[in-house]
């Protein structure tokens, strides 16, 4: 056995925090109304508490059963606020329903972090490069929110995130989960990002696509494109998506669509990449994810020629 209690050990980065473990939603809402921060996976929050000394009071949501539910029906999924990314990655049923979200969840952090981190936490952190957010956009996700008074509201994800680290959550409100639309017939979705490392890295740029086809299997019926890390929030590329609708997905049309996404994104230059580089990445990633989404919608879809 190793020696007990060595006094020479370096003190923790993290001064002790006041921790609460509410047993039900009512108790959690009372803590939230009292200004206590909500702790889900802790992969962001515990780092902030360690490095900044804030927040000092945390209420853990993981012991509330109703927040642990992952409900999947034939056309929708509801993901409770305490559901980890690894539960999403491991669910074959969820993968069939929303493959782009699994693409995103599978590249967050590492195995260890995905075992701890939650999907709703990834959204509430509201990073412009949050890996699950573009995919949630193209799956028309909405946040389920409850207030201290018990009022419930549902907010579209594109209206929920206001800026880097900023959401539309009011003091005292709690996100109980996220509800998304599953794929229909002849519909596919995909997400891809570019990073300098393959893991434990933040996206330099990312794109998600959801595409459905008419019964002829060639004409695009509906399209949704969304881009990450190239604006203050995840941005929808509506004009680019519209350019695909009503036409067969031919290489020239796809290239034009990729040009439109590159035009409408609003990247900045920072220590990770220049704005121009990000724009070029968005163009390439758009080609990739539209192709991947089409392949999932109509397996055997003819791969698009290289740009």
């Amino acid at each position: 056995m190793p020696p007990a209690k060595s006094p020479a050990l370096r003190p923790s980065h993290l001064p002790p925090v006041e921790l609460y473990r509410p047993a039900d939603l009512g108790e959690l809402l009372a803590h939230a109304a009292d200004g206590v921060h909500l702790l889900a996976g802790g992969t962001d929050l515990v780092v902030w508490a360690s490095q900044c000394g804030e927040p000092r009071r945390l209420a853990w949501i993981g012991s509330i059963d109703q927040l642990q539910t992952l409900d999947i029906t034939s056309d929708r999924a509801h993901i409770g606020a305490a559901v980890t990314l690894s539960r999403i990655v491991r669910s074959g049923q969820f993968r069939s329903l929303a493959p782009a979200v699994v693409d995103g969840a599978a590249v967050v952090g590492s195995v260890q972090l995905r075992n701890q981190a939650t999907l709703v936490g990834n959204v509430c952190t509201a990073s412009p490069g949050g890996d699950t957010i573009p995919a949630l956009h193209v799956h028309d996700a909405a946040l389920d929110i409850v207030s201290a008074a018990g009022d419930r509201r549902s907010v579209k994800i594109s209206d929920f995130v206001h800026g880097p680290g900023q959401t539309g959550l009011n003091t005292g409100e709690v996100v109980t989960g996220v509800t998304l639309r599953g794929l229909g017939q002849r519909e596919g979705s995909a997400f891809s990002r570019f990073t300098q490392r393959n893991a434990l890295d933040l996206a330099i740029a990312s794109v998600a696509a959801c595409l459905s086809f008419e019964s002829d299997g060639r004409t695009v019926a509906r399209a949704h494109l969304s881009m990450g890390a190239v604006g203050p929030t995840v941005l929808d590329a509506d004009e680019a998506a519209r350019s695909l609708v009503g036409h067969p997905l031919e290489p020239a049309r796809l290239r034009n669509c990729a040009d439109l996404t590159a035009e409408c994104c609003r990247p900045i230059t920072d220590h990770r990449a220049s704005a121009d580089y990000r724009r070029q990445l968005v163009r390439t990633l758009t080609m990739d994810v539209v192709d991947a989404a089409a392949e999932r919608a109509i397996p055997g879809w003819l791969a698009v020629e290289a740009p």
């Binding site: 925090v17 921790l19 473990r21 702790l39 996976g41 802790g42 992969t43 515990v46 780092v47 360690s50 945390l58 853990w60 993981g62 012991s63 690894s86 952090g109 590492s110 195995v111 260890q112 972090l113 075992n115 701890q116 434990l200």
Partner: peptide, 24 residues
């Protein structure tokens, strides 16, 4: 949570012990 040197198994699943509060 980046380096994994603090990895432990929680109920058989690997996690970073630097990001887990003991009380949870």
């Amino acid at each position: 949570g980046d380096c994994g040197a603090c990895t432990v198994l929680v109920e058989g699943q690997p996690m970073c012990s630097c990001l887990l509060l003991t009380g949870v």
